[in-house]
Design a protein around this nucleic acid. Sequence first.
DNA 1: TATAAAAGACTGACAGTCAGTCATATAAGT
DNA 2: ACTTATATGACTGACTGTCAGTCTTTTATA
Lengths: 193, 193
Amino acid sequence: MTGKNERYQEILAAARNVFAEKGFDDTKVSEIAQMAGVAKGTFYIYFPSKLDLVLALVREMQGKILSEAEKVTNLNVDHFEKLVQVIKIAFIVIESYRDVFPIFNAVSAFKTDQWKVEKEIRIPYYNVLKTLIENGQKSGEFNRKLNAEMTAVLIVGMVEHVAHDCFIYHSDYCIDDYLHTIDSLLRKALKGR
Amino acid sequence: MTGKNERYQEILAAARNVFAEKGFDDTKVSEIAQMAGVAKGTFYIYFPSKLDLVLALVREMQGKILSEAEKVTNLNVDHFEKLVQVIKIAFIVIESYRDVFPIFNAVSAFKTDQWKVEKEIRIPYYNVLKTLIENGQKSGEFNRKLNAEMTAVLIVGMVEHVAHDCFIYHSDYCIDDYLHTIDSLLRKALKGR
DNA sequence: TATAAAAGACTGACAGTCAGTCATATAAGT
DNA sequence: ACTTATATGACTGACTGTCAGTCTTTTATA
């Protein structure tokens, strides 16, 4: 059981190394297998396809974001501070997955119905943000006029695009610069009377 | 000369039909060629690769957004109104290119250095937004504390993610719902004292 | 000895190539 | 002017190389 899970993890780790170097499309399954020290056939015992391996990595990334975010929501600070921390967590985890993150954005281009998988993976994080905003609204800390669900989508858009700008485009600005700008922008938008 | 350009356009149009139906990865070059009524070899006279065809379509889309946006920047309305209109234009054009838009986001996953191309295509739109924000700041209409360039990146993130939510995820919300939310969010963030 | 894991040779599909065809345009010969 | 030769380049589709995914065989384990 442990042995089997080790192989699985070895292949995941090897895949991340090759993706980091070559990107998704130029990475051959045989290379991943070689780097993991197994034969190509073994790869297919653990993963039904190359795309499924990527989805496993993306789910792993989202899982880490969620578990870290849940810790924050239990902290004893105001709702705005929680929101900023949840955004910061996303940046930190995405940075540690900078090799798989660009592929996440690409998933819906591969097969026509993959957008369902992509959406399903994003929904829990949307919900964390949505609940946080709703709670802030109920407590009177946040402006009640904004739709919490749509605002959550807007925030995810900002977060992912900033991650793209910093980790893929190698922007002049770093994550902390952006965090500061997001903080002032959202502070006015959510707490403004 | 015209004839050559016609073939080029025919292949672009055919490609969009097939992409709309099957997505990028499941579309075969031979299908695009067949739909355009030419042989596969002819495709490669006009486009060096399948990916280059997509980039041509994406550049076409960005070109339309830019030319429409430039009209708006010359209008005689306040800066905030211009900003909202430029955002609305992006939505309208992206909607008419909903078949190629998901592929745009995927470009950087294909080859490791494609992010340069992706960035180069986005820069002009970033600049339109940046200039608009800077002008608003100079005139005293917008809060001077926000960094115009980073704010432009944040807005593009919101716009593209919303487009994704509406045109690919088939969200419960429509573009007009989101436009309204973006309007109130940015109004407070930019015009708030 | 049976059962599961691992191996890698094999297959099919498809992106991209290339040697050659064909229609049209231009020049030459009558 | 009018036929015939020459050149051009758009167009073709059979062909090649590559690689994802399969399948049969081999090896380890219980």
